[in-house]
């Protein structure tokens, strides 16, 4: 009985540890030259497509600029350029079939030395923005999971 219990516990733990270590995901190609087919992912549709993402990006930038913990990072930002690239980037990440015309994540954040906590402030402001434009928490998490893959390329550059 005890043996059976222990065995089942061990199996469960093995599954859990396996899941923990299997969580690394290869990032999808960003900025690859494309004649990508115009099939659009469910996630991109759930974000409201092109206009939905545009609305989200406006709210994201509004929240980042209003956040005293991180807005100093935007002192030299051209917001028109930033907005265009962010639209493309979210579109690519969410599988919307766009082309990202900016620098890669390492180059984009080079010299900014963004700290781990600052990255988390961006996540919090982004969650707030997504809620504010009416994106459901489940959809938020699907997008966040994809964007969070870039964290190692964004911090401490």
């Amino acid at each position: 009985m005890i043996l059976k219990k222990t065995l089942s516990m061990t199996l469960k733990l093995t599954a859990v540890v396996g899941a923990l270590f299997g969580c690394a995901q290869a990032p999808s190609a960003i900025g690859s030259e494309s004649d990508q087919p115009i099939t659009v992912s469910d996630l991109y549709q759930d974000l409201g497509g092109k206009s939905g993402v545009a609305r989200l990006v406006d709210k994201l930038i509004e929240n980042y600029r209003a956040d005293a913990r991180i807005n100093v990072l935007f002192n030299e930002t051209n917001f028109e350029y930033f907005s265009a690239r962010l639209n493309e980037y979210i579109c690519v990440r969410a599988g919307g079939g766009c082309e990202y015309k900016g620098l890669d994540m390492i180059a984009t954040h080079s010299g900014m030395d963004i700290k781990e906590r600052e990255f988390n402030y961006f996540v919090e402001d982004s969650q707030k923005a997504m809620s504010e434009v009416g994106i459901a928490v489940g959809v938020q998490n699907r997008l966040l999971k994809l964007l969070a893959q870039d964290q190692p390329d964004v911090v401490h550059q």
Partner: peptide, 19 residues
Amino acid sequence: SVSRLFLQGPFDRSTLVNA
């Protein structure tokens, strides 16, 4: 101990797993 937060876990909810 080992811990991981899966931002998109079951039911698209963030899920924390620990062993």
